[in-house]
């Protein structure tokens, strides 16, 4: 479906499976307590949930475009964004290749 919906990533089962741990990590950020834990030690928090070094590095770089290409759900990137102070316009624009 990716090929026919120009310029977007349809969140298919394949993407969901590949990005499972990064999405799972983002899903846990739905409380002030977990957000504080994540903010205190992003890499350690992600590793404990099963994220790979590559996934940890993509988040460290705030590389939203690469994270979309990797397969993450936009809704869960927004959840990570909320924890690190990046907004929807920033993240969306970055995934378009026009942001920084």
């Amino acid at each position: 479906m990716d090929d026919v919906i120009a310029g977007s990533y349809v969140f298919t089962g394949e993407r969901s499976a590949k990005s499972y741990h990064i999405n799972k990590m983002a899903k846990t950020l739905g409380s002030a307590v977990t957000r504080a834990q994540f903010q205190a030690d992003e890499a350690g928090y992600m590793r404990a949930i099963g994220c790979s070094d590559e996934e940890i590095e993509l988040v460290r770089q705030r590389d939203w475009k690469a994270l979309m290409e990797y397969g993450a759900s936009i809704y869960l990137l927004l959840r990570i964004g909320a924890a690190v102070g990046h907004t929807l316009p920033q993240i969306g624009l970055h995934t378009s290749g026009k942001g920084h």
């Binding site: 120009a6 310029g7 977007s8 979309m68 936009i74 993240i91 624009l93 995934t95 378009s96 290749g97």
Partner: peptide, 9 residues
């Protein structure tokens, strides 16, 4: 609406 990718916005 399109929240990501080249068609963002």
């Amino acid at each position: 609406h399109q929240l990501h990718g080249a068609g963002f916005g």
